[in-house]
Design a binder for these strands. Structure first.
Length: 1177
RNA sequence: GGGCCACUAGCUCAGUCGGUUAGAGCGCAGUCCUGAUAAGACUGAGGUCCCUGGUUCGAUUCCAGGGUGGCCCA
């Protein structure tokens, strides 16, 4: 052992400022460039591929970004420790409408026309510039949160190389016939004049949106041509004789919340299998609606005249309210069958306008109905109609009035409140609007996507077949084009002579091949963004055409960019290090796909990405390669505020991660995020909970560490000098060379080995929450049982084998904990590791020294992040012992409970504790006897029969009896309740624990459980079948011991109050308090004072010769026992050996304290004493 | 309207493969213990385990329906 002057460890205060500690660790990492050091250390390791879901850096990062980044980091750090080299490349999503809107706001403009007047070139320049305004903030947050992502080498979606690869993907899709131009109805923002993706639409739903709700008459046409296959029988039943109506013309009743779409009505849809009725009222009006809705829609006073199915109605012609407009374009208005018709609401007859509804459009396509607009793309209704020239939502009122005037309005239930989509940025109500758009035919690969999805490891698992699986099963083609400016341009060039002639560029080389001579110079240094790329003209690719091709105006959905990220993040040709350090050159996407860099082993983002990035990644990858681009996906829940509401800028309830990290530290925040709730659950966040985490876990761990360091320094304990305690000399690992002899040590080592194995299992399953909670439980056991119970072993003077074992054990736990926590709390773990790590570690990784780190160049600790994950030794786990110690804790807890009930303080020693263990637990008791005695301050532990401890009643053991007896349970219960519990127990015991008959049932001992009631004389407590009792009988000896302990307790507090050091030896003075008591005669205080040598430790006698060199306790100056007991209170006199030993008193004088001693008055057992303590020597 | 998830103490969360007395931490009240610990232990107050039906000897747990909240989609 080394001397005190050369302390093995940097002293560690139990009071720690974590944010400050983290800053210094961060500084050390920076200096050492640890990030790259770790990467280099794994240069030859197998690759672990991670894809970063690129955040849009056009806003400050929030706490939810710390969440996802932490979960990215924890897995990558863990995998590093498991011997992999993670691909940690960061990325930025830079295109899209949000960026444009930000610039629009800055410029004070709000329409595409204004953008074009302002100039696309300058507009896009500003977009590009704006995106990175917040990048510095993101980078700072990422670093401060201890997240290791390669930000310096991040991919950026606006880079030419990225766009070009995205083009390559597009071209491949085109070549596979997976791209088409479609005429489809899409959610359209009339203000932004652009379609929104479903992801975008989802952002803008608003509940309780009031809309009109009107029921409209669609009278059957005066003349039915029958050319659409109307049934003669049905028409006859409705009153049409083949040439004219013989009865009042019936009207179909349909419901709509968008009156403006009536201007474009072109069909009525009915459910072929739905039952419809023709009804008449007293005024002779005739109406047709679904039978199920007839009463709701029509109300009272209607008689049913006929009924038929929807199929019967098909082909009947009707007069549309604004039929003239469309009729001029050859529209026939007739009833059509459609599966989407339901009778859940409306009338069972659906008004269809193929231009303004997705289902309507499908219906139109199926029946060859031309798409004609009555509204322009700004949402302004054509002049031909009432309200024409105004925005459709404004025109609604005039249209309703007009319909009413013309007798076509059957009912008006306005307003109708429902959930309606609004533009997620500008708040304009969206219109479902038919227009041309470029589509990716994802439906062609739907089965492949579903199959690929089955192979992905989703966490939580329900996402796979639940949310994501459902989404895939309902897959529709991906509308990928946007009529905007700042985005990846769609690489399609169209001929000016024949719009059917198209060319899709997969690279700039493709452009160079067909570029016109006039625009060829533009290719030099071409920015692939608009407007530059728009100026590049190509010679038509169609043979003999001779036309000029110009790019279509659209840009790509930003989800397309991020979905293409696995392919587009590399600037080809690129040389990368694949698994095992092998260098691979990738010349293009095909090389990438064949390389180990594809697919990703792991991705993680929040659940809102299910239909976003998770989908776009899967879709593009499946279309291009036939399989998914990621093999496991951790889906995180959202962070809500303290009230359970989603955090959003507009609500002002966003928590700034900096505030939390500055106050409590990044590790506290990370630990909270990992352990507070399962990763996939939505969680409520509050800074107070982070604080609680800090105290509960980090501080407890830190204090245990501080305890170890303090005493190891005092004792000069150096684990490196005891390498033989560890298997293969691997100092500090959980794998000891042999199980420790002491039960407590053996137990915590067993727990430790079990912990390491289970943490590894959890982390392998992407379950940082489970791993963290296990670690937390272990730290609690370590601190509040192991260390608490072991304290005296560290205090005692001798450096014997038992003490060494205690140090070896505690050291192994702490050193291993730095590794287990390293992925989760990288700062604190590293700070602890650097102080604790063995100095003589010769592993190759450890030889890379952190500059600025104290220590010798070789064999000094570097960083826990260069360490491998610990191994475990199953031979060191002892489940029986684990159970035994938990039993000891239960007994101690029940014993304190019993003491508390009977009012006997733990400080008062008692004779015995009686234990009636659960069947099967008897054998565990000898293992834990000493722990129990000490915890409960009793002299003996005895096994007792339950009836000697308490009265008890029998209860049926339901889990056993239930399955056996089934419906007879009731009778059996009755029989047991009526039996005499003590008699049954005695009978069972006397019969050698055989069976017993009660009420016709045969029971065995295991069929019963006992319930206790207190018995006089014993303080009892029970939990399940475990029953303990404390013998509360006090003898004079026990009372005297109690008094002594009380006295010790007071003196200990005085030591603290006097500011003595832990190892200071003192002299203690005690006299009855003045003035009422006679002063002690001078002769009672001998000079030199008589002393009794103090003992250290609880049981072993202190011997001077074993104490050389240690600082605690110093050699006592005493020279033999002397008595002064006559003047001490008898109880103290009888226990003075014990008192001196506990209080490190060289002498206990029955005398008034000298001046300068710390003096207090204490009342003990009704006597007031003046007590003084002074440093010895 | 549909899908997925959640609902357990004042708060944040465990748990119950159907069984006796449903737990932890924090907070509150009190007691105790303590020379690593702003810590720890014990006691108390605080629970219709969201509701209603069903299955069952027995449901907080399983099933069905409903409610509330969150997310996603119409």
């Amino acid at each position: 052992m080394t001397s005190n002057a050369n302390k093995r460890y940097e002293p560690v205060s139990s009071k720690v400022d974590f944010p400050q500690l983290e800053s210094s660790v961060l500084e050390a990492w920076r200096e050492a460039d640890l990030f790259h050091q770790v990467d280099r250390a794994r240069a030859e390791a197998p690759l672990f591929v991670f894809y970063e879901g690129p955040p849009t850096a056009n806003g400050s990062p929030g706490i939810h970004h710390v969440l996802s980044r932490s979960f990215k980091d924890v897995v990558l750090r863990y995998k590093t420790m498991r011997g992999f080299r993670p691909l940690r490349r960061g990325g930025w999503d830079t295109h899209g409408l949000p960026v444009e809107l930000e610039i629009e706001k800055e410029l004070g403009i709000s329409s595409k026309q204004e953008i074009e007047e302002f100039g696309i070139e300058e507009f896009n320049r500003r977009c590009r510039e704006s995106v990175f305004r917040y990048v510095g903030e993101w980078e700072a947050m990422t670093e401060r949160a201890g997240v290791w992502l390669d930000m310096a080498d991040a991919y950026v979606t606006y880079n030419n190389s990225y766009i070009e690869s995205a083009w390559w993907v597009f071209r491949r899709l085109w070549d596979k016939g997976l791209v088409y131009e479609g005429y489809k109805v899409t959610p359209h923002c009339p203000r932004c004049v652009t379609s929104l993706s479903s992801h975008e639409v989802a952002l803008g739903y608003q509940e309780d949106t009031p809309d009109p709700s009107i029921y409209i008459r669609f009278p059957a046409s005066e003349s039915q041509s029958m050319s659409y296959g109307a049934s003669v029988d049905t028409l006859t039943a409705l009153g049409y004789d083949g040439e004219r109506w013989t009865a009042p013309r019936p009207a179909f009743i349909a419901w709509t919340t968008t009156p403006w779409t009536l201007t474009a009505n072109c069909a009525l849809a009915v459910g072929p299998d739905v039952s419809y009725v023709l009804s008449e009222n007293d005024d002779g009006e005739r109406a047709i609606v679904a039978e199920a809705l007839a009463r709701t829609v029509l109300g009272d006073g209607w008689r049913e005249l006929a009924r038929c199915t929807g199929a019967d109605l098909v082909g009947i012609e009707y007069d549309a309210p604004y039929g003239d407009f469309l009729a001029r374009r050859g529209h026939a208005h007739r009833v059509l069958p459609a599966d989407f018709v339901s009778t859940a609401d409306g009338t069972g007859i659906v008004h269809s306008a193929v231009a303004y509804g997705a289902e309507d459009a499908e219906l139109g396509r199926a029946h060859g109905i031309e798409t004609v607009h009555t509204v322009d793309n700004r949402g302004v209704l054509a002049e031909d109609f009432p309200g024409g020239g105004t925005f459709v939502k404004d025109a609604d009122k005039q249209l309703i009035r007009d319909l009413d005037d013309r007798g076509l309005l059957f009912r008006d239930d306005s307003p109708y409140k429902h959930t309606y989509p609004f533009c997620w940025r500008c708040g304009t109500p969206l219109l479902y609007y038919a227009k041309t758009s470029w589509y990716i035919r994802t439906t062609a690969m739907k089965d492949a996507m579903l199959a690929g999805n089955r192979g992905i490891e989703w966490v939580p698992e329900h996402i796979k077949e639940g949310r994501f699986g459902e989404w895939l099963r309902n897959n529709v083609d991906w509308s990928v084009s946007r009529e905007r400016y700042w985005g990846t341009p769609i690489p399609i060039w169209r001929c000016d002579r024949d719009p059917q002639h198209l060319l899709v560029a997969g690279s700039t080389a493709d452009l160079a091949e067909r570029v016109t001579d006039e625009t060829r110079p533009l290719l030099d240094g071409l920015d692939l963004h608009r407007p530059f790329v728009d100026r590049v003209e190509l010679r038509c690719a169609e043979a003999g055409c001779g036309g000029t091709m110009r790019r279509v105006p659209e840009v790509a959905d930003a989800w397309y960019d991020s979905g293409a990220m696995p392919f587009a993040q590399w600037d080809y040709p690129v040389t990368v290090k694949a698994s095992g350090g092998e260098e691979v050159t990738l010349n293009g996407v095909d090389d990438l796909i064949a390389s180990p860099l594809f697919p990703a082993d792991y991705i993680t983002e929040a659940v809102d990405q299910t239909r976003g990035w998770f989908y776009s990644l899967l879709a593009l990858s499946t279309l291009i390669t036939g399989k998914p681009s990621y093999e496991s996906c951790l889906v995180l829940g959202l962070i809500l505020d303290g009230k359970g509401e989603k955090m959003s800028k507009s609500k002002g309830n966003v928590v700034d991660p900096w505030a939390v990290m500055n106050e409590h530290g990044a590790d506290a925040l990370r630990w909270y995020l990992f352990t507070a709730a399962p990763a996939g659950d939505a969680r409520r966040f509050s800074p107070d909970l982070v604080k609680e985490t800090l105290r509960q876990f980090l501080l407890t761990l830190w204090n245990t560490y501080s305890f170890y360091v303090t005493y190891a320094n005092i004792d000069g304990f150096d684990p490196d000098a005891h390498a033989e305690y560890w298997k293969d000399g691997r100092v500090g690992e959980p794998t000891l060379a042999a199980p420790p002899p002491n039960e407590l040590d053996r137990w915590i080592v067993s727990e430790l080995n079990g912990l390491v194995a289970r943490v590894a299992d959890d982390m392998d399953a992407l379950n940082a929450t489970g791993a963290g909670r296990r670690i937390q439980d272990f730290v609690n056991l370590l601190s509040n049982w192991y260390v608490r119970r072991s304290r005296r072993r560290f205090w005692k003077a001798e450096n014997d084998d038992d003490k060494t074992w205690a140090y070896v054990t505690l050291y192994s736990c702490l050193h291993t904990l730095t590794k287990l926590t390293a992925p989760m709390t990288p700062f604190v773990a590293d700070a602890m590791f650097r102080n604790l790590a063995p100095r003589n570690e010769g592993a190759s990784e450890a030889e890379r020294v952190v500059p600025g780190q104290a220590g010798t160049p070789s064999g000094s600790p570097t960083s826990v992040h260069l360490e491998p994950f610990p191994d475990t030794d199953p031979a060191l786990t002892d489940e029986r012992l684990d159970r035994a110690v938990r039993l000891a804790m239960r007994i101690a807890s029940l014993g304190r409970n019993a003491r508390s009930k009977s009012g006997v303080k733990v400080r008062q020693p008692l004779a015995r504790v009686l234990v009636s263990p659960r069947p099967g637990d008897e054998e565990l008791l000898p293992l834990i006897e000493s722990q129990v005695l000490d915890e409960l301050n009793v002299k003996a532990m005895e096994v007792a029969e339950p009836e000697s401890l308490a009265n008890f009643t029998l209860k049926p053991n339901l889990p056993v009896l239930g399955p056996r007896l089934g419906a007879d349970m009731g009778a059996a219960r009755q029989a047991i309740a009526e039996a005499d519990a003590s008699a049954v127990a005695a009978a069972l015991r006397s019969g050698g624990y055989g069976s017993i008959e009660l009420g016709g049932f045969t029971f065995e001992p295991g069929d019963f459980q006992i319930e206790v009631e207190d018995k006089p004389g014993v303080a009892a407590a029970s939990e399940g079948a475990l029953l303990i009792g404390i013998d509360t009988t006090l003898t004079p000896e026990l009372e005297a011991e109690g008094t002594a302990r009380e006295f010790v307790h007071r003196v200990q507090n005085m030591r603290k109050a006097a500011g003595f050091e832990i190892e200071d030896r003192i002299v203690t003075y005690v006299v009855p308090a003045p003035p009422s008591v006679v002063p002690a005669p001078p002769s009672v205080v001998p000079a030199p004072p008589s002393v009794i040598p103090a003992k250290a430790g609880t049981s072993q006698p202190f011997r001077e010769e074993e104490n050389g060199g240690t600082i605690r306790p110093p050699s006592p100056p005493g020279r033999g026992a002397g008595g002064e007991g006559g003047s001490l209170p008898p109880a103290l006199a009888a226990q003075q050996t014990y008192i001196r030993q506990e209080t490190l008193s060289d002498a206990l004088h029955a005398a008034a304290p000298p001046p300068g001693a710390h003096t207090e008055e204490h009342e003990i057992d009704g006597v007031t004493l003046t007590v003084g303590v002074a440093r010895a020597g």
